[in-house]
Structure formats: C-alpha cells, structure tokens
Amino acid sequence: MFDSWLPEAASSYAEKIDGLLVFITVIVGAWFLASEALLVYLALRYRRVEGRPAAYIPANTLRVMAVVLVPCVVILVFDLVIDAVAAPVWHEIKETQPPHDALIRVSGEQWAWRFFYPGPDGVLDSADDFEVVNEMHVPVGAVVLFELVAKDVLHSLWIPALRLKQDAVPGRSIRGWFKATREGRYEIICAEICGFGHTLMKSGLVVENQTAYRAWLDSQQGTQLAEAGHPGQR
C-alpha cells in the first residue's frame, strides 16, 4: 500500500493521520477507478459504427436524470462519512489541549528556528529561561505544549515524522501540542515560503528518554546561565 511511502511515524497522532490518509485514498481511489473505467468503457462501447445511430436522450425528466443524480447522492453520503471520521482527529490534534509535561516556545525567523525552554520554574519569560538555536530536545512519551511565534514573516513548523504542521504568524502566539512516541533524531522544516533562505531553514528534533533529556536540560542550563552572567540566580 502507499502508506509505506509516508515518513516514519513518531507521534501519538501520526498513525491516526496516516490511517485517515489511507481511508480517504481507498474511498476516493475506488470512485476514481470506477469512474475512469466507466469513461473508457462508454467511449469504446459507443464508438461510431456504421448503421448504429445515436439514441436521442435529452434527459429532461427526473427519471432519466436519476442516472446521474443517484450516484451524486451516494457521493454526498461518502463526503459526509469522510468528514465525520476526520473531524474527531482534527478535534483531538488542534482543538484540544491535554495536560502537558513540557513547555517550549518555538520561534521562527529568517532563516532559523529558535526554541525557548522555561527552565526549572516551568514559566516562560522568567529569568531562568534558556534558548537553543536549531535543535529542539523533547522527552519521549511526554506531552509537549508548544507556543509558536514568528519574528518577521510567516513560517510553518513542519515536523514530518510527528505529522505536525502549523503556521507561525508574526503578532500571534499559537498553541499546540504533540507527544513524541519514538526516540530518535528527526527534521524540523519550514513549510511556508519565507524568503530566499527558505530552503535552508531546517532544524533538528531530538526525542530522547527521560534520563538523557534531564542531562541535556542540566547541561543547557549551566551554559546558558553562565553565558548570561547570572551565576547567583536560582
């Protein structure tokens, strides 16, 4: 099946999106193949043959039009089914916010991603915050709440492995969440054209176990505080 083409799935909702893609592809694929086959069949079956004139069917009564209208009503039903199946997935990913274990502010700018961690107090915009450029670390299995901002122009936070995409808009802070389920190193990409460095705007995502994550946090905090020149601060 085509889902082998999809990138590795490493978030709690990746498989739901993948399942939806397969579900839609199967339904519309079946309609597509059937319609295509019908088109070819009609064209070949009713090609011009000497002595077989065309029938006069203007189709101006509902009875005859039903040939077209009934399949369209069925399409309507399929449409609604697809949306009924898809709406809860969207609702879970974008409209709800499960309690979070970690909080990160992600900021896009021409042409880099910056990640702001709240530090030990768990609150952003406080003195113990620290910042990393072009590499985000998150613990595996933890719900991460992100706050997405942009400094200059539109960007789009695109992490294919997590099936996560969200535009970053200057002047807005957009909240979202993900739960990475598999350790590893993944790519963070900008998916919205943002000037001539757009192609080069990529970062790494490191999903690691709690111990490694803690260690990384400690190392970052040390350097960051030292660099910031506030050794005495909590």
Partner: peptide, 28 residues
C-alpha cells in the same frame, strides 16, 4: 475526453486536501 479523464484525479484528490486532519500532513 482527456480533460475528463485527467480531471477525475484532480477532483478526487481535492477530498484529501479538503479534510483538515489529512491536510495537516499534506498542506504545502
């Protein structure tokens, strides 16, 4: 006839893009 044959695929794939949850992955 070619236009119809090609358009069918363009039409049905609109459903992928028009479904928000699927569009998270497919957008852009």
């Amino acid at each position: 006839l070619g236009a119809l044959a090609v358009f069918l695929l363009g039409g049905v794939t609109g459903i992928h893009n028009g479904t928000p949850a699927a569009d998270i992955f497919l957008h852009d």
